[in-house]
């Protein structure tokens, strides 16, 4: 699969995960999740509200950048995306840097709103294209936001799953770990085991292949949504669409 078509497949995959949501928020510079949210809205009018931070057109909030966090605290956001330079098997994420804080090398930008939104948005999808032992580690060097909390800690949200360019894992909240749900075209269980630095649950005999994107949905993406994506993510749009 070409890079462009594997990115389109990821967009369609994510769009399907957002179908049961009313309000999806997407952070700045997250073109694949942003495109997926726009696609789901265009295809099914569900989610009804898509809010892309940093975009003027696709941002309907009027009370400043704190309004997003107020919305999350009230349960008004159903899904959000987080990534991380490191993600571990307990769904802890590190956006701060490798090595010991505060003198990390490299230092990444910082924690942003993750230490808050991860607690308060029910369906947080961890998305990181790179699937390697460098990113998917046994234990993160810095917990920007924890995957699990003690039962007495107020938490209405948390990790739903982890999507990479090789596979989709669901997070098993009770067990506190990931389980492999489907393997993308071009990868294999062996490949995933080789490139994942944490332990996860899997079915040795029959982990399904990730379904190919629905041709109708792809058509909506190409014909209807590509223009909207170009508005928000011009450079990304140039890499996947031939306008």
């Amino acid at each position: 699969m070409s890079d462009a078509s594997s990115k389109k497949a990821l967009i369609c995959f994510i769009a399907n995960l957002l179908r049961d949501c009313n309000h999806v928020a997407v952070g700045a510079s997250s073109p694949i999740p942003g495109a997926a949210a726009l696609l789901a809205k265009a295809a099914w009018s569900s989610p009804r509200h898509v809010n892309i931070l940093g975009s003027v057109k696709n941002n309907f909030l009027t009370n400043g950048s704190q309004e997003l966090f107020d919305c999350a605290a009230q349960g008004r956001i159903d899904a959000f995306f987080l990534g991380g330079g490191q993600i571990d098997g307990s769904a802890n994420i590190n956006l701060m840097g490798r090595g010991e804080y505060p003198n990390n090398t490299p230092r990444w930008p910082g924690t942003f709103g993750s230490a808050y939104l991860y607690f308060l948005i029910p369906k947080v999808i961890l998305f990181r294209e790179e699937h390697s032992r460098r990113v998917l580690v046994d234990t993160v060097d810095f917990v920007s936001a924890p995957g699990c909390s003690a039962p007495e800690t107020y938490r209405t949200g948390g990790p739903y799953g982890l999507l990479t360019n090789k596979a989709f894992f669901k997070f098993e909240k009770e067990k506190g770990c990931f389980s492999l749900k489907s393997i993308h075209a071009g990868s294999s269980l062996e490949d995933i085991l080789d490139n994942t630095g944490f332990d996860f649950l899997y079915d040795k005999e029959n982990t399904p292949a990730t379904p190919e994107p629905n041709p109708e949905l792809l058509k909506v993406l190409e014909n209807e949504v590509s223009v909207k994506i170009r508005d928000v993510y011009p450079q990304f749009s140039d890499t996947i669409f031939t306008h």
Binding site: Y101, A115, Y116
Partner: peptide, 30 residues
């Protein structure tokens, strides 16, 4: 190093002349 809503909350406390503002989340973060 902070997290976005905590910066907003700290400013909001100042805006209202309050000593602090409580905030959900964060517990368990480094």
């Amino acid at each position: 190093d902070a997290t976005c809503p905590a910066i907003h909350a700290g400013l909001q406390a100042s805006q209202k002349g309050l000593p602090f503002m409580p905030l959900r989340g964060i517990i368990g973060s480094d």
